[in-house]
Nucleic acid binder design. Structure first.
Length: 568
RNA sequence: GCGCUCGUAGCGCAGCUGGAUAGCGUGUCAGACUCCGACUCUGAAGGUCGUGGGUUCGAAUCCCGCCGGGCGCACCA
């Protein structure tokens, strides 16, 4: 058996579609079904395995085309079904006309063998066909520290990227540095005010009303003074602001890189927005839109006809003062992703408060001659921290809003990455600080890691008694008949498909939930089926399942970049 | 006002390319197990799937209206 690109579920579904279509043809030829185009049926896994391992609705959806009651259609199909040589050994008609299929033993044995053979690659597929995908996430403003939203976005984006890699996409992780535009100017003037206040007193230099008030701004100004003294005291405000910003930006960016690295996030590309202005790509994008007839001038500004592409209102591309807007830069940026760097798909992870930007950004891709449907935006809802059931807003230490760095000082990296992926991006999330640091089964990440550690311990214990797994050859896996063994194996068989589904729906939370369910099923099996002390054949079979389980759990954790402890 | 998004058991959530009796965790109550690692199991209780229509053989799922929460509607990003 070839395990390359192994997905037991997909293979079984494909096989069912084939034999069902064959049965339809034979039934038509035999005259038990009227000649009509084959109905668009689906094959799926019933919620309750009492209704089979797989089921199809072909008889129900075909009722209209065949002008026959579903039960009669189902009977005609079942009569012609040939299960010989397939993964299935039993079929039945049930309920309103479902045809239910039951797997034979071989399916389960193949799953265990595949996990044992593929090891750290079990779960990987080429579903994505190597499609070149850019995943951009966090892209925090370099004017200040990263916040909780960035923490969620980081865990989400990095795990989404990993999910897509496992599903066979060619993924680039990217961080856009917003080192141009208004907020950098504001940043500079805020630094300048702190700088001047240092030498001339608080009252001397009014702080800009829309400036950044954080303590980090003062600290950066102090750092500059410590290094370079009062050289900027007598320069013009703009020159001073620019000099301070040019000093502080690299400092902040380096801090972000360091923080994200401790968060186990490593980007392939740190993309500077400023380079788009310097290279003329922003101007070129604006010109391209103009050439295509989608801009106009009004009140001295250059507008883009966003309404022609589904947006609610038109947008300014170049301000009256001649400076392009962020929107113009963003169009150039995404143009660069597709047209310059050749990504076939771009995925952006944004805070839900940016949702108003989605339609116009996608529309702008169409306007500039690309395909807006290749740009997908994942909107992420906000997250609240709770401790003792109460919302936590401020850091006790700094008195400011809790930053990503604050969070990681309190909560293990594993817990942060896992917790932020417990729910899909669209749900408003409460992050329970008490639970995240808890070392007990209530804590889902601990629970999953514990299952893995327990397996490792069991294997070690058995090895001490001389009971070592002898490999896939000569196994009698048909001995694994206990319901908990079957359900565990079944769940392991779902892993490749689950990763595909997570990649397709941009929802890595499926992986954390899968891992939790897997751990639960293992614990159930462990409680019901002993390995130690069983006769050799059964012991080897159970060791095989145990090791396959370890592989599946470990691969989920590896994908999430959560540590995989052998003991804890 | 317009738009996006969410609304499922006391609480936290899954299910949403339409399928069978709506699940999981937690919490409450009653019990079992406690043997390879702290695990696990059984039972009880808990639901107008926000609401009203529509489409369908079939709707938590798709469509429309309404109610409620969050967010957005800058020559900010």
């Amino acid at each position: 058996m070839n395990f390359d690109n192994f997905d037991a579920v997909a293979a079984a579904e494909a096989e069912l579609c084939t034999i069902i279509n064959a049965a339809l043809q034979k039934a038509t030829a035999a005259g038990t079904l009227p000649g009509a185009p084959a109905p668009a049926f689906v094959v799926e896994i019933p919620a309750d395995t009492a209704n089979g391992d797989f089921a199809t609705n072909v008889a129900m959806v075909g009722a209209k085309a065949y002008r026959l009651p579903p039960a009669k259609i189902a009977a005609a199909i079942v009569q012609q079904l040939n299960l010989t040589g397939t993964r299935f050994n039993k079929v039945e008609v049930a309920g309103p006309g479902f045809i239910n299929f039951f797997l034979n033993q071989q399916y389960f044995e193949d799953v265990i063998t595949a996990a044992l053979t593929l090891e750290e690659n079990y779960g990987r597929t080429n579903y994505g066909g190597g499609e070149k995908v850019n995943v951009e996430f966090v892209s925090a403003n370099p004017t200040g520290p990263m916040h909780l939203g960035n923490a969620r976005g980081g865990a989400l984006g990095d795990c989404l990227a990993a999910t897509m890699e496992w599903a066979g996409y060619n993924v680039t992780r990217e961080f856009l540095i917003n080192d141009a535009g208004n907020q950098i100017v504001k940043f500079g003037h805020s630094l300048s005010a702190r700088y001047m206040q240092h030498f001339l007193g608080e009252e001397s230099h009014p702080f800009p009303e829309d400036g950044y008030h954080g303590a980090d701004i003062t600290a950066l100004a102090e750092d500059y003074i410590a290094e370079y003294g009062n050289a900027l005291l007598n320069t013009g405000e703009d020159e001073r602001a620019a000099a301070l910003a040019a000093y502080a930006l690299p400092t902040n960016i380096a801090a972000m890189k360091a923080a994200l690295q401790t968060y186990n996030i490593n980007y392939d590309v740190w993309f500077s927005e400023q380079t788009l202005h310097d290279s003329g790509e922003v101007d070129a994008a604006v010109e391209k839109l103009t050439a295509r007839g989608y801009t106009y001038t009004q009140d001295g500004a250059l507008w883009y006809k966003a309404t022609a592409f589904g947006a609610e209102k038109d947008e300014v591309l170049v301000r009256q003062n001649g400076i392009p807007t962020y929107f113009a830069a963003d169009i150039a940026y995404h143009y660069n992703k597709f047209a310059v760097r050749g990504f076939e798909r771009a995925i952006d992870i944004w805070g839900a408060d940016h949702h108003g930007h989605v339609a116009r950004m996608k529309g702008a891709m169409d306007a500039i001659g690309l395909d807006g449907s290749k740009l997908d935006i994942v909107l992420m809802q906000l997250v609240r921290l709770t401790r003792g059931g109460e919302q936590v807003r401020m850091s006790k230490r700094t008195g400011n809003a809790i930053t990503l760095v604050d969070l990681l000082e309190e909560v293990p990296i594993d817990a942060a990455r896992f917790f932020f992926n417990l729910q899909g991006p669209g749900s408003q999330m409460d992050f329970d600080l008490d639970l995240a640091v808890a070392e007990n089964a209530e804590n889902p990440v601990y629970y999953v890691q514990y299952a893995h550690a327990r397996i490792c311990s069991l294997i070690k214990t058995l090895a001490a008694e001389g009971a070592v797994f002898k490999g896939a050859q000569g196994l009698n896996l048909s001995l694994l008949r206990h319901p908990t063994e079957v359900e565990l194996t079944r769940h392991i068989s779902y892993l490749p498909g689950e990763i595909k589904a997570a990649a397709r729906t941009y929802d890595p939370a499926r992986i954390t939930r899968f891992a939790i369910d897997l751990a639960t099923l293992y614990h159930k099996m462990y409680a019901a089926c002993r390995v130690k002390g069983e006769d050799a054949a059964l012991q080897q079979a159970r060791l095989a399942l145990t090791i396959a389980t370890r592989t599946a759990i470990a691969n989920c954790l590896r994908l999430l970049k959560v540590s995989v402890p052998e003991s804890m």
